[in-house]
Design a protein around this nucleic acid. Structure first.
Length: 830
RNA sequence: GCCCGAGUGGCGGAAUUGGCAGACGCGCUGCACUCAAAAUGCAGUUUCUUCGGGAGUGUGGGUUCGAGUCCCACCUCGGGCACCA
């Protein structure tokens, strides 16, 4: 079907005519540019900025429709709204396209950005285009480099040699957050391990604050995002316990620390395990066991992370020939090397308490090691049952700890260890430092020069930005395991900024998540040249009042952005300690129950939808489909239905026959009441993100108004004008073209954006009469039309007089009557 | 295995503090307009019914005058984490 008339003649709804007419006028009036002068309270709305891959798709259309509702709503409420847009324009796809087409990544990138920008303009998102930014612009990445240097000054950016995640396809390292089920988050290739010297951000220093500050976000961020972050940070309370490893042959005595959450079970430790793949295992092993260990390490290396982490797998390991001394009992515990202990969690070594830890018990049974229960839980002895007991109980076989519960035993054991000087309370985190270097071209260069005599020397601020060379194209960019920048010899070789001697630039570039960790602050002053943002205005806008984006960034981007904000706060540059006060995760757009994809051939082309139904109908469909967090199945929704509604609403504007400014007080009372209720309820509904319900309420009011025009008080009734004006203003949150056109038809100058939210007359929220329900035993038996201010006694009398009630009671007595005037009476028969 | 979230008509989804379940829309059916169709408008649409009424919000219990909503147990689906000591 098509609701669009080819002409824009009077009286015919034509989305094409509106889309041609209004953008230039909005531009001229600068309606989306914040005043930024302090005359109004400021609010900041932000959609996660897009990556410029091709043109906009249905997913963008949904996300930006949601963010735009909030931006337009806040403008109607009279706030000075900052709603900017930019592009996350560094990244691999540009580079891959450049290799394929023998071009420079910037060509592909900026062409796509321009295409997307044009589509966004057509889509009428209410953003201030003058603040547009791109992270691949030197004026932007200059400040990314500047921030990197400040992190470096504070010891928060450092290099270390360590086993890292390596994606063989993309030929670059990955952060932990970018490995999903052992595969590259970007391309799905199974990730391998490599030992490399890489740059890291010390996000672990902020683990506690990242966790604690989530209290500020509770209730304002989706619970599942908070849960995922909590999980990822993985705070775990316990103790560090020091063990002496006895000398053996030429191997001298050593000290080893383990992390445990169960220091109360120390008396039950019967062996000791170190991560087989850690260097520690090689340090410990005696010559007699060295060959067995190295064979075992080879075997472990061959396993993929997925196989290795399977809990189904039989436990494996080898004895190292060494013994650890239990600090409480002086008992000797054999030290094993096994792959079930992870090298990069805790200290890479554990005390094994098989009776109370299933993994340790499985290992003990595989290698016939002793099992000693030290906590009586009432369950069968784990040595017999094969099931470790981890629950509550009473400590036994534990010296001074005997008789204590698990909860009492933990602090008691820590106290004993502290007195012996051989352990202490410790909080361990799962979170690792953020690996930020990438062996790829299209990213922010790391502003460091490596000098033989001076070491790592930061590039002086006045020499920033370190620009990417523009003479590398096509094949020269192909991934080869080291950064393509290394081949740009004239770029790489520079004098050392400190001593002037021959030196080399760092050839890695930064993870693109670095770029996106602070862009929201740059929007406050995108053209500022003296720093990353203007200190005079940053606190006027930060934090972002409403952030909108997909849940796929629940950990990655959102955790990094929170970390950056805290560090920048600590640098004294911003007051906010959290970047985003409220977060809305929009769902995905599916087709036929599945995500749209080329391989399934179920993609829906946004441009085609817009051509067919118009921008407003597509936006309205996105909003009306359901709660913003839910996925939208395009096969289940009806853009033609949305178009039909928009035309109906628009025709109301045509029909209004009273002059602008008409006093509504003499108008149809029922319609006035409906109008004011709609406006009143809209506020709470928008605040609760129930945009779909607002649309339903609009539909009701449009239907009611139609009825009044056609079969009631008529088009000249002032209540009709009042209703239609309210429809236009509220509709402007979802369907900007139609609303603007209606506003114009109603005789108002542009723009409806500045119309202001209609005032609510509280006296009109009460209806003339309400329907009271009469129940017997909770079942509805009658309905009564009563005055809204009827008393409980009067309502009860009316209810008892009802014929239906008398018949149903059929002579039975009444035990009790519950009255909730004016809505309900419930009669309980004897 | 652990942690979140969710189960309501043919479909998407509504339902402040427990108080008329199914708002609004899609689809479908019928009617009007039309030579006809499209578009548009109007009416109907949880289900069973002996037309009095009965049943009904994943299942089974419970609290209450009254439960989609609160409590307990379970089932199913979605998501996250997972040999994390």
């Amino acid at each position: 079907m098509s609701v669009q008339a080819e002409t824009s003649e009077e009286g015919v709804y034509s989305f094409a005519a509106m889309e041609a007419k209004w953008p230039a006028i909005w531009d001229e009036l600068k309606v989306f540019t914040p005043l930024d002068d302090g005359s109004r309270e400021r609010r900041y709305v932000l959609d996660m900025f897009p990556y410029p891959s091709g043109d906009l798709h249905m997913g963008h259309a949904e996300a930006f429709a949601m963010g735009d509702v909030v931006a337009r709503y806040w403008r109607q409420l009279g706030y000075d709204v900052l709603h900017p847009i930019g592009w996350d324009s560094f990244g691999l796809p540009a580079e891959n396209a450049a290799i394929k087409h023998n071009a420079h990544p910037s060509e592909w990138t900026y062409t796509n950005i321009d295409t997307q920008a044009e589509s966004f303009k057509r889509y009428a998102i209410s953003v201030d285009w003058s603040r547009r930014l791109h992270t691949s612009d030197p004026e932007y990445y200059r400040w990314t480099q500047w921030l990197f240097k400040r992190f470096h000054d504070r010891g928060l950016a450092y290099r270390k040699n360590s086993p890292v995640n390596w994606c063989p396809k993309d030929q670059t390292v990955l952060a932990n957050e970018q490995v999903v089920n052992g595969a590259c988050e970007r391309c799905g290739t199974i990730v391998t391990k490599k030992s490399l010297n890489q740059w890291y951000f010390k996000i672990t220093d902020y683990a506690d604050r990242l966790l604690e500050d989530m209290d500020q976000l509770k209730g304002h961020w989706p619970e599942r995002v908070l849960a995922m972050q909590r999980n990822w940070i993985g705070r775990s309370e316990g103790a560090h316990v020091n063990f002496v490893i006895e000398a053996a042959g030429e191997k001298a005595e050593q000290q080893l620390t383990v992390f445990t959450t169960r220091p109360d079970t120390l008396y039950g430790a019967t062996f000791f395990v170190v991560a087989a793949d850690a260097p520690l295992a090689l340090e410990l092993v005696t010559p007699e066991h060295a060959e067995a260990l190295s064979d075992y390490r080879e075997q472990v290396k061959k396993l993929s992370d997925i196989d290795r982490q399977s809990t189904e797998r039989e436990k494996t390991g080898v004895f190292t020939g060494r013994y650890a001394v239990n600090p409480l009992t002086n008992e000797l515990l054999p030290v094993w090397a096994a792959d079930y202990v992870l090298a990069d969690y805790g200290t890479g070594a554990i005390m094994a308490v098989p009776a109370h830890d299933q993994r340790d018990l499985d290992f003990a049974r595989a290698f016939d090691l002793p099992v000693r229960a030290v906590l009586d839980t009432g369950a069968e002895d784990p040595a017999v049952s094969g099931v470790a007991t981890a629950g509550e109980g009473t400590l036994i076989n534990s010296g001074n700890l005997d008789g204590l519960s698990k909860a009492e035993g933990i602090p008691a054991a820590i106290k004993i260890l502290e007195e012996l000087g051989t352990g202490e309370k410790f909080v361990n985190f799962r979170l690792r430092d953020w690996l930020l270097s990438r062996q790829r071209f299209w990213g922010t260069p790391i502003p460091i020069v490596h000098c033989e005599s001076c070491g790592e020397v930061p590039v002086p601020d006045d020499q920033l930005p370190v620009r990417l060379p523009d003479n590398l194209r096509g094949e020269a960019l192909s991934p080869k395991g080291t950064s393509p920048l290394a081949a740009a010899t004239d770029w790489v070789n520079v004098p050392c900024p400190a001593c002037g001697g021959a030196a080399r630039r760092d050839t890695d570039t930064m993870d693109t998540f670095v770029d996106s960790s602070w862009y929201f602050m740059r929007f406050a002053s995108p053209d500022y040249t003296e720093g990353p943002f203007d200190p005079a205005t940053i606190n006027d806008w930060m934090p972002v009042g409403q952030y909108v984006g997909g849940v796929e960034h629940a950990i990655l981007h959102l955790l990094y952005a929170r970390f950056f904000t805290k560090v920048i706060h600590d640098m004294g540059l911003v007051e906010a300690t959290e970047p985003f006060s409220r977060l809305l995760n929009q769902g995905q757009v599916l087709n036929g129950g599945k995500a749209m994809s080329k391989s399934l051939g179920n993609g829906v082309d946004l441009g085609e939808q817009l051509d067919k139904y118009g921008v407003d109908a597509v936006r309205l469909t996105m909003i009306f489909a359901g709660p913003p967090e839910d996925d939208i199945d395009w096969a289940d929704v009806s853009p033609s239905g949305s178009a039909k509604f928009l035309a109906r609403a628009w025709r109301l504007g045509q029909d209004v026959a009273s002059a602008p400014g008409t006093d509504p007080s003499t108008g149809d009372a029922a319609l006035r009441s409906a109008t004011h209720r709609m406006v009143h309820d809209t506020k709470a509904l928008i605040d609760g993100h129930k945009f779909n319900v607002v649309v339903a309420r609009l539909m009701e009011l449009v239907n009611a108004t139609r009825k009044v025009i056609d079969t009631g008080a008529g088009a000249a009734d002032p209540a009709v004008r009042e209703a239609v004006e309210a429809v236009a203003v509220v509709l402007s949150l979802f369907a900007p073209y139609t609303a603007e056109d209606m506003w114009n038809q109603l005789g108002h100058p542009a723009s409806v954006v500045n119309a202001g939210f209609p005032a609510v007359d509280a006296s009109l929220l009460v209806e003339a009469s309400v329907t009271a329900v009469v129940q017997i035993q909770g079942k509805v038996r009658d309905r009564l039309e009563v005055a809204p201010d009827i008393s409980d006694a009067d309502l009860e009398a009316l209810a008892l007089a009802s014929e239906n009630v008398k018949r149903t009671l059929d002579g039975r007595g009444i035990r009790k009557v519950i009255v909730r005037a004016p809505k309900l009476v419930n009669i309980v028969p004897a």
